[in-house]
Write a protein that binds this DNA or RNA. Sequence first.
DNA 1: ATAATTAATTTGGTAACCTAATTATATCTA
DNA 2: TAGATATAATTAGGTTACCAAATTAATTAT
Lengths: 162, 162
Amino acid sequence: MYVQDNATARQLLRSFMQFDRAEWHKRSIEGCKPSEIKVLLCIKRNVAPPTQEMKVSEISRLLHVTSPMVTQLLKRLEADGLVERHSDPSDRRTVGIKLTEKGDLIATKAAEAFFASLHGLIEYLGEEQSQQLAELLISVSTYFNGKEAALQHTYWSGSEEA
Amino acid sequence: MYVQDNATARQLLRSFMQFDRAEWHKRSIEGCKPSEIKVLLCIKRNVAPPTQEMKVSEISRLLHVTSPMVTQLLKRLEADGLVERHSDPSDRRTVGIKLTEKGDLIATKAAEAFFASLHGLIEYLGEEQSQQLAELLISVSTYFNGKEAALQHTYWSGSEEA
DNA sequence: ATAATTAATTTGGTAACCTAATTATATCTA
DNA sequence: TAGATATAATTAGGTTACCAAATTAATTAT
């Protein structure tokens, strides 16, 4: 059984392993660790216009990490002067989180670096193949993580959660 | 600049993030952690016929992890009775590593689980798309990690290192 | 015979996550 | 409206998967 497919399965597995080791998001930028950069970008891309602030729970949901993890990351970012926390007067359990000027600058630089790298990739693969790749990877995520996962948005998606 | 491509770049980034979170190799099997399973499979797939043994340095090279890491993993696997170490009499600095019967059994089970999951994926995506995906991911790795990376084999590749 | 090299190991980190328990506040209910 | 319940964030402590530097032991090269 599966004799014919074995070659494809092995190729796939090998390609997954290699992609896993690929350094597309493992670099520190301006002294920020990858996980910290993700938080900065998440805030930059998802703040609501009136206050320009986000809640811990929103970041947690968008990045798919627990709120204790978000708290820890924010603690470091605050110590580095990249975000500010203000206790929300309308619900004092929550905290409004906002990028500082410095934090915004680093987020911008990080986004530029990410997109420059991606544009290089798109040039390398070609527009059409790049789009196909994105579609295929979403299908793979759907297959492995169940349908919900593929519908969830990450921090760089401009659109809102369903 | 890059205005047209921005949508593609964002889609790509989102697909990468989602794939990153996909649980295709994050499961423990039979009490073995993912990293331990990788070592077991690496040994099973790459042992040389005469002795059925491997060296730490070979595992390290094939899995792209440092030898101290391999040593640590082997220590746990040995404690669980899944591998055996024999000091090689022809070069007593090195150690021959071999799966025990129990280790071989778990490696077999792990491989079966991996491939069952992959065959499901191939069915889901279709044979042709699966192959295209594998090729695209290898291209992406080449782009991000440099040409050498794409030529290196992982533990499931039946073929030998170049 | 000594120096240099190599293989594996020990030691002591780090990054990125997690769960459980705690604290403070808000909301619901009797 | 007082007490019970729920929710947001944090603190505390643990895990996995890695790494670099130093060490030990054995081999090879001068």
